[in-house]
Design a protein around this nucleic acid. Structure first.
Ligand SMILES: [Mn+2]
Ligand SMILES: [Mn+2]
Ligand SMILES: [Zn+2]
Ligand SMILES: [Zn+2]
Lengths: 147, 147
DNA sequence: ATCATGATGCAACCACGTTGCAATAGAATT
DNA sequence: AATTCTATTGCAACGTGGTTGCATCATGAT
């Protein structure tokens, strides 16, 4: 049996080819953004991502432009959870699809929580000729309630 | 029959007493903000309001602080329609409560539609120690789909 | 190896809010 | 009416999220 390369290397190769498949050059910053999104569960803000990548010499504008490029390429999902900030997460059909599950955002601490799909049921009345892309709940989270 | 004063004067008196009733001092800038909101149909942004009032020497920070004060006093309703900007409008007590029913906002045309309460069911999983104040659906409305 | 063009870093900019502070002006009290 | 207390104001400065211009660099095609 052929010895498999380390998981991280396999990841890298997959990510790189995903980029090429989208006609995007495989650059170090771009790969770093994609990798970070891939190893993160849930939606991440630009600021958050910049915090993780700028120590490695990657500029925040570059991070932003890559988030845009990746979103437009369909590799990354961009969502506005209602807290005045764009969030990004891996657009992986076989996992955690961005628009598949509802989100809860706390109006006090602004924290965003991913909810299971079965947390919200939409009756047929919700559709009415429209298509629903996203479900957001706003409220006060447990932590803020006891504070 | 006693001659009524001009509508604008009546307005002023009502507005002033509304402020006093909320334990807010009736100042020229505050009255101006309230009046502008009262004579406007629909939701207005801070920038918009500032554009109208700064020619009269009212500072944008003052406009903002008054919008906050009036919102907290319940005289004005503050909403985030998902476009990263707060909108303000007169809080009309006899109109529907903002948080009582879910809303659908079209990501294309930004139009906001009120949904019946039974359009959305929240399972117990949605709560998890939090309280839900608002349910917002985003998507593409019928009009935008056929366009 | 050459080269065209996409991608990067940096600086500057914009919109929307927010904060600090000294000066001003409501309104309650005398 | 003058005094007093303190809410409110204007101005300046700051913060965050996002955008733009441009010279330089590096990918990947030839
Ligand atoms: Mn999520
Ligand atoms: Mn409504
Ligand atoms: Zn919270
Ligand atoms: Zn629409």
């Amino acid at each position: 049996m052929k010895r498999a390369s380390k998981p991280s290397e396999i990841d890298e190769a997959q990510l790189a080819s995903a980029l090429r498949g989208a006609h995007l050059r495989v650059t170090l910053p771009r790969l770093a953004v994609l990798r970070e999104l891939w190893r993160t569960a849930g939606a991440v803000s630009h600021a958050d991502l910049t915090g993780r990548l700028s120590p490695h010499g990657i500029d925040r504008v570059t991070v932003w432009r890559n988030l845009m490029a990746l979103s437009e390429a369909g590799l990354v999902a961009r969502t506005d959870l209602g807290d005045h900030t764009w969030r990004f997460e891996r657009a992986d059909p076989n996992a955690h699809a961005a628009d598949a599950h509802p989100h809860f955002v706390c109006v006090d601490c602004r924290k965003v929580t991913c909810l299971p799909d079965d947390a919200v049921f939409l009756s047929s009345a919700a559709a009415r000729g429209a298509i629903v892309l996203e479900v957001q709940l706003k409220g006060r989270c447990g932590a803020c309630l006891t504070r």
